[in-house]
Amino acid sequence: MEVRTIKVFTTVDNINLHTQVVDMSMTYGQQFGPTYLDGADVTKIKPHNSHEGKTFYVLPNDDTLRVEAFEYYHTTDPSFLGRYMSALNHTKKWKYPQVNGLTSIKWADNNCYLATALLTLQQIELKFNPPALQDAYYRARAGEAANFCALILAYCNKTVGELGDVRETMSYLFQHANLDSCKRVLNVVCKTCGQQQTTLKGVEAVMYMGTLSYEQFKKGVQIPCTCGKQATKYLVQQESPFVMMSAPPAQYELKHGTFTCASEYTGNYQCGHYKHITSKETLYCIDGALLTKSSEYKGPITDVFYKENSYTTTIK
């Protein structure tokens, strides 16, 4: 009895394709271990004539594949690729409408935090270190965002349907971005203890939790000093293409032309909904596939993004 075979390709990165001759009487799992086709788990399936010449994702289970996976995804987590594939199996079914010149995501599976993050990423200057993220990001900007969303979920250790947080998501993504040249110098002034300067680099240099107003941050924000008295913390120097200011959701007025974009969060910790506000020729609110415009805006804002380049204080 002759062994019926077909020729397929296996890959971990969709760049390096490895030619395989597979036995049609055995499952993919018996031949390769966990195997995925377009995100779908085909591990328990036997090869079919229609699979001839198709590319299958496999887990990096030998040295060659491990090197290829690390170079593309910059992670050695053995569960990463499987999590990416199972997320992709959902995100490829989502709709990605162009809204006001940006790629958004039609609401499904509690994905409003991903839509808000995706919209924000198209408006701030950011370059990702893992080629996987950078490639998928370019495709997302062009309207094909399924891979990018699935990668975000995998890097953030999230599953489809789980509630997510924009600030946490951005923080994970910033860790995989090139923020080497970003720098922030802060000064804390206390009447009792004097003053202390701190220099922050990388992710810490672009994120701040405690106030939404970048102007206020430049002037000074009140913080408790270690001595128990009130101290003032203010920005001395900022070198970065953008800054992200966050605070627990509270009524906040966004003035046209003073910011790049913002995240609105309605609801409580267990259950809520994100919308995205962007400042173009007027203010726009993007909620999944829905767009509304207004000249002014007041609502429960939790993150505001500002364009920056270089700032030095005039406070002496």
Rank of each mutant, 00 (worst) to 15 (best):
V3A: 14
V3W: 12
I6Q: 11
V8Y: 06
F9W: 11
F9A: 12
T10P: 07
T10V: 13
T11Q: 06
T11S: 10
T11E: 06
V12S: 07
V12I: 11
V12Q: 08
N14Q: 13
N14Y: 07
N14M: 13
I15H: 15
I15F: 14
N16R: 10
L17M: 11
L17W: 07
L17V: 09
T19Q: 08
V21K: 14
D23L: 14
D23W: 13
M24P: 13
S25F: 14
T27A: 12
G29E: 10
G29K: 08
G29P: 04
G29C: 09
Q30T: 13
Q30M: 10
Q31A: 14
F32S: 07
P34E: 15
T35G: 06
T35P: 07
L37G: 07
D38I: 09
G39I: 07
A40N: 15
A40W: 13
D41G: 09
D41S: 12
D41E: 09
V42G: 05
V42L: 12
T43Y: 09
K44S: 12
I45P: 06
I45N: 14
I45G: 13
I45C: 12
I45K: 12
K46Y: 12
N49R: 13
S50C: 11
S50M: 14
H51W: 06
E52I: 12
G53C: 11
K54R: 14
T55R: 11
F56K: 04
L59Y: 13
L59I: 11
P60S: 07
N61L: 14
N61T: 14
L65Y: 09
L65Q: 08
R66E: 12
V67Y: 12
V67T: 14
E68N: 06
A69G: 06
E71D: 14
Y72Q: 09
Y72P: 05
H74E: 07
T76H: 10
T76S: 13
D77F: 05
P78S: 09
P78G: 09
P78E: 13
P78V: 09
P78Y: 09
F80S: 02
Y84N: 05
Y84Q: 01
M85Y: 11
M85Q: 09
A87F: 03
L88A: 05
L88Q: 05
N89K: 15
H90K: 13
K92L: 11
K93I: 06
K93E: 10
W94N: 03
Y96I: 03
P97F: 09
P97Y: 07
Q98Y: 10
V99I: 15
N100K: 13
G101I: 03
L102E: 06
L102T: 04
T103F: 09
T103R: 06
I105S: 01
K106F: 06
K106D: 15
K106R: 08
A108D: 08
D109I: 03
D109Q: 13
N110E: 06
N111L: 05
C112L: 01
Y113E: 03
Y113K: 01
A117W: 02
L118K: 03
L118R: 04
L118E: 04
L118Q: 05
L118G: 02
L119A: 07
L121G: 03
L121R: 05
Q122A: 02
Q122G: 04
Q122F: 04
Q123S: 08
Q123N: 08
I124L: 15
I124W: 05
L126K: 01
K127R: 13
K127F: 10
F128I: 04
N129A: 11
P130T: 09
A132S: 07
A132F: 05
A132K: 07
A132R: 05
L133K: 06
L133E: 02
Q134A: 12
Q134Y: 05
A136H: 12
R139M: 14
A145H: 04
A146Q: 09
A146V: 05
N147K: 13
N147A: 10
N147W: 07
F148I: 08
F148Y: 02
C149F: 03
A150R: 04
I152R: 02
C156V: 06
N157D: 11
V160I: 09
V160Q: 04
G161D: 03
L163D: 04
G164E: 02
D165S: 15
D165G: 07
D165I: 01
R167C: 01
E168I: 06
Y172G: 09
L173W: 04
F174G: 03
F174A: 04
Q175F: 05
Q175C: 08
Q175A: 11
Q175H: 12
H176T: 04
L179F: 07
L179H: 05
K183L: 11
K183P: 01
R184P: 02
V185S: 05
L186P: 02
N187W: 08
V188C: 09
V188T: 15
C190G: 00
K191L: 09
T192A: 11
C193G: 02
C193W: 01
G194L: 02
Q196H: 13
Q196P: 02
Q197Y: 08
L200S: 10
L200R: 07
K201N: 11
G202T: 01
E204P: 12
E204C: 07
A205D: 00
V206H: 00
V206L: 04
M207V: 08
M207D: 03
Y208H: 12
Y208K: 00
M209G: 10
G210A: 02
T211S: 10
T211K: 02
T211A: 07
L212V: 11
S213P: 02
S213Y: 01
S213I: 01
E215D: 14
F217I: 14
K218R: 07
K218E: 03
Q222Y: 09
I223F: 14
I223N: 04
I223K: 04
P224Q: 13
P224G: 08
C225L: 01
C225G: 01
T226I: 12
Q230Y: 15
T232H: 07
T232L: 13
Y234Q: 08
Y234K: 08
Y234C: 06
Y234D: 02
V236R: 03
V236D: 02
Q237A: 14
Q237H: 15
M245H: 00
M245T: 01
S246N: 00
A247Y: 01
P248H: 11
P248E: 08
Q251I: 14
Y252S: 07
Y252W: 14
Y252F: 12
E253T: 11
K255A: 10
H256P: 14
G257N: 08
G257E: 10
T258I: 07
F259M: 02
A262K: 00
A262H: 00
S263M: 08
Y265Q: 01
T266H: 08
T266R: 07
N268T: 10
N268R: 13
N268P: 13
Y269M: 15
Y269N: 15
Q270I: 08
Q270M: 08
Q270H: 10
C271P: 03
K275M: 07
K275N: 04
K275F: 00
H276N: 06
H276G: 01
I277F: 00
I277G: 02
I277H: 01
S279W: 04
C285A: 14
I286E: 00
D287A: 00
D287K: 00
A289T: 10
L290T: 15
L291Q: 13
S294W: 11
S294L: 15
S295H: 13
E296K: 10
Y297L: 04
K298F: 11
K298M: 12
G299H: 01
P300Q: 11
P300L: 08
I301E: 00
I301H: 00
I301G: 00
T302W: 02
T302S: 08
V304W: 00
S310T: 13
Y311G: 07
T312A: 10
T312I: 11
T313L: 15
T313N: 15
T314A: 13
T314N: 15
